[in-house]
Simulated assay, not measured.
Amino acid sequence: MAGGDLQASDALVAVPLAATVALAVALVVVTGLWLRERRAARRYRALFETPRPQVPDHVPPAPATVRRQRAAVVVNLSKFSDLDPAAQLRRQAYVDAAFRQHGWEEPLWLRTTPTEHGAEQAREALAAGVDVVVACGGDGTVRSVAEALAGTGVPMGVLPAGTANLLARNLDLPHTDLARALDVVFSAPDQPVDVGWLEVDRTGSDPVPERHLFLVMAGLGFDAAVMAGVEDRLKRRLGYGAYVVSGARALWGPQARAGVRVDDGPWHQVRTRGVIVGNCGKLTRNLVLMPDAEIDDGYLDAVVLSPRGGIDWGEVAWAILTRDRRGQRRVQHLRGRTVEVRLEAPQEVELDGDPVGAARRVSVAVDPGVLLVRAHPWPRTARR
């Protein structure tokens, strides 16, 4: 065989080999994180298997002249489907007792439904005049409650009960310990945070695009396809592992032609696998997609992912694992108050991990400081 033919043959072998190695490294990292999350979730579920006797069942009532505070708890019971009815009642009784112990009235419990995901329940809580609305569920429940509370001056507490719990991770809220999460509701100050608004134009010329609030991230393309491909059955059984399975399915696909504009700047034409816009940037404790993103800085951060194959996905994984801020040919970083994306063909769209269907155009804008969240000061990014 000639020398040139041998080099070409070696190159053909090296490309899939490098892609396989990159994918294997990524799967090892994600699997390790998933196993840690599974252990934390087991500790969290174990909290409800027996009553918590250290919380007294009765606290002397406050003087009649003192108004006691009251909370509403908007709960998504589907997140506790692995608990039997008795364990669910013990959980609610524990929360009620904790509020009584702190001198509050027993909370108003409002359950979400398959068609009402939390916003309607939060508005009912506002009408009842509560002092704080506590979202007990996953990121979808938290987002829906926030949509009703934004701009009202009534704070939101969070009792995380989902798989990802993205907002809780970004605000350093306890997401595997109910007692600690309740302590935050009782003792933490109200922190003003930004929210993002996503307009979804499905045809590219919709007269009235859909408008959705998000707290963590909104994206289109690869990450939205991953979220859309997660099966509820696998999510309940595997937790983060369901995202690994869906990600492996969506890893190989064509790039999309898109135009991207930040604020009132020029349009830039790109070929991309995904565009993700973040109000904050953490995916898990150790995986940070947007290292400079802060939830209260009045700006949005964005990344444009442009891998073409296995080796390029390795570059993307390396940029995320090393918290690269400079960007490179496969990962571009953007920053502004608004981000617009136009697509030649429809792409899947997601916000805070929930798929919302396909669209040909999306517009994202930040609304600074309009939501109060009960949280202790969280770790800040160290910008270089």
Rank of each mutant, 00 (worst) to 15 (best):
A188N: 06
V66E: 15
G253T: 02
Q92A: 15
V208K: 07
R70L: 08
E348S: 13
P56M: 12
D367R: 10
P53H: 12
P192H: 08
E315Q: 13
G327W: 04
V21R: 07
A71N: 06
H102I: 02
P189C: 12
A26P: 00
L321R: 04
L182Y: 00
T163G: 01
R337H: 14
R335E: 13
Q347R: 08
P254F: 01
Q54P: 01
L6E: 11
D264R: 15
G241S: 15
A14L: 15
R261I: 05
R100V: 00
W318P: 01
L17K: 13
T284F: 07
V244E: 11
G298N: 07
A71L: 06
H376G: 00
P254E: 13
E350S: 07
T284G: 11
D172Q: 13
G247E: 09
G196D: 04
P53L: 10
V270K: 05
D194M: 02
L213F: 09
A164R: 05
P114C: 11
W267M: 14
M1G: 15
A375M: 05
R36N: 08
G274I: 13
R236G: 08
D57Y: 07
V184F: 00
L220C: 11
G151E: 04
A250H: 04
D367V: 04
P155D: 08
C136W: 04
L83M: 14
Q332G: 03
E49A: 11
G4D: 11
I295V: 12
S363D: 01
E49K: 03
L287Y: 03
N279E: 15
T284V: 15
G265V: 03
L351R: 12
K79Y: 03
R360I: 02
T163R: 00
G247T: 04
R380T: 12
A86I: 09
R361D: 03
S78T: 14
V331P: 03
S246T: 13
D82R: 06
A179K: 02
D194E: 07
L110R: 14
V134H: 00
G314I: 08
V303E: 03
P355T: 10
V373K: 02
K282P: 00
G204V: 03
E231W: 05
L23H: 05
P291L: 09
V216G: 01
A258D: 10
L334H: 10
L110A: 10
P16W: 06
T20C: 11
F222Y: 12
V316A: 09
I311G: 03
V331N: 04
L372N: 06
D296A: 06
E37Q: 10
Y94C: 09
V158I: 15
V208F: 04
V373C: 14
P56K: 10
W267I: 07
Q121D: 00
N76S: 11
Q121R: 09
Q328L: 13
L167K: 03
D96L: 08
A382H: 14
L182Q: 04
R43H: 10
E124L: 12
P155V: 01
D367M: 06
W104F: 09
V73I: 15
E348H: 10
F80P: 04
P346V: 08
D139H: 02
V66A: 15
V185Y: 00
P266V: 10
A181E: 00
A46G: 14
G259L: 07
G3C: 04
D139I: 01
P266W: 03
R380D: 13
P85G: 11
G281F: 02
T176D: 14
A22S: 13
V145T: 04
A14C: 07
R257V: 15
